Computed example of a mutant assay.
Amino acid sequence: ETVMPGFTHLQHAQPTTLAHYLLAYEQAFSRDVSRLREAYARVDVSPLGSAAFASTGFPLDRAYTAALLGFARPAPNSMDAVAARDFAIEVLSGTSICMTTASRFCEELVIWSTAFVGFVQLDDAYCSSSSIMPQKKNPDVAEIMRAKAGSVAGELTAAITIVKGLPMSYNRDLQELTPHLWRGVEAARQSIPLLAGMIATATFRTERMAAEAGRGFSTATELADVLVREYGLAFRTAHRIVGRAVRHGSLDLSTVEAAAREAAGLSVVDLGLTEAKITSVLDPVHAVAVRSIIGGPAPAAVAVQLAEQRDLLARDAAWAEETDTALSSAFEHLINESRRLVA
Rank of each mutant, 00 (worst) to 15 (best):
R35G: 02
G57N: 12
R37T: 10
R42I: 05
A51I: 05
V45P: 00
A39H: 08
S30T: 12
F53R: 02
A51K: 04
A39T: 10
F29D: 04
S50P: 03
G49C: 10
R31G: 05
A28D: 14
F53V: 15
T56V: 07
S46C: 15
A41N: 07
A28I: 09
R31L: 13
S55D: 09
D44M: 07
D32N: 14
S30I: 07
D32R: 01
D32M: 03
V33G: 01
A52D: 04
R37V: 09
R31A: 12
A51T: 12
A52F: 05
S55R: 08
V33N: 07
G57K: 09
F29Q: 03
A54I: 15
D44W: 00
V45N: 06
R31Q: 13
P47K: 04
V45D: 05
S50L: 05
S34I: 03
A41Y: 00
G49E: 08
P47I: 11
A39I: 03
G57E: 08
T56L: 04
R35S: 05
S34A: 14
A41W: 00
V33H: 01
T56K: 07
R31V: 13
S34M: 10
V45H: 11
V33I: 15
R37Q: 15
L36I: 07
G49W: 07
L36W: 04
L36Y: 04
A51E: 03
F53H: 06
A52V: 15
R37S: 11
A54P: 06
V33D: 08
A28K: 12
L36R: 02
A52H: 02
S50R: 00
F53D: 09
R42K: 07
S55H: 01
V45Q: 14
F29Y: 10
T56D: 03
L36T: 02
S55G: 08
L36S: 05
S34C: 09
A52R: 04
A51V: 12
S34Y: 02
S30Y: 01
L36V: 02
V45M: 13
D32S: 15
D32A: 13
A52N: 03
A51F: 01
A41R: 14
S55I: 10
L36D: 11
F29V: 11
A39S: 14
D44V: 05
F53E: 06
S34G: 15
R31S: 09
P47D: 06
